[in-house]
């Protein structure tokens, strides 16, 4: 097992650093190109959620991302230093006429995470929230 740690300030520009790391590591463990794209999007959404809703963009608070590379899977832990969240909604969300006209253009991020990774979990307390994402190497399982 190998671990790669990336700490970023709560500024959205640094989400791109984490995304680039996810891309490199996904390729390094042999994920197919389409799964690497899924990984990048899921990690991007989780990190942006930690920056915006966890740390509320307070520059002094960090988002910590740990990539754990195992023979059969890539596991990513995204931690913030916020006050915790009650519940995240990973259910399917689509664009419809009512949310278009009402300007409700947010909320797709958690749906993308839930749909694009193989499994995920969220642990939240008053000390912060940790989201764990997992993508399995299909060739390692079979």
């Amino acid at each position: 097992m190998e671990r790669v740690l990336v700490n970023i300030p709560s500024n959205p520009i640094f989400e791109r650093v984490v995304r680039a790391s996810a891309s490199e590591l996904g390729q390094a463990i042999g994920l197919p190109p389409e799964r690497v794209e899924d990984l990048k999007l899921a990690v991007s959404e989780a990190v942006n959620n930690a920056i915006d809703h966890g740390n509320r963009r307070e520059a002094t608070k960090l988002v910590e991302v740990v990539f754990v590379l195992e023979p059969d899977k890539l596991e990513i832990h995204i931690s913030d230093q916020g006050q915790g969240v009650e519940q995240l909604n990973f259910s399917r969300r689509t664009i419809d006429e009512s949310n278009l006209e009402g300007g409700m253009h947010r909320g797709f991020g958690m749906y993308f995470i839930g749909a694009l990774v193989d499994d995920y979990e969220v642990r939240s307390s008053q000390q912060g929230t940790v989201m764990t994402l997992r993508l399995y190497r299909k060739d390692a399982i079979s």
Binding site: R19, K40, L41, S44, E45, N48, H105, R106, G107, F108, G109, F112
Partner: peptide
């Protein structure tokens, strides 16, 4: 090369 939920918004 990349679009996320903020981009979709």
């Amino acid at each position: 090369a990349f679009i996320n939920s903020a981009g979709i918004s």
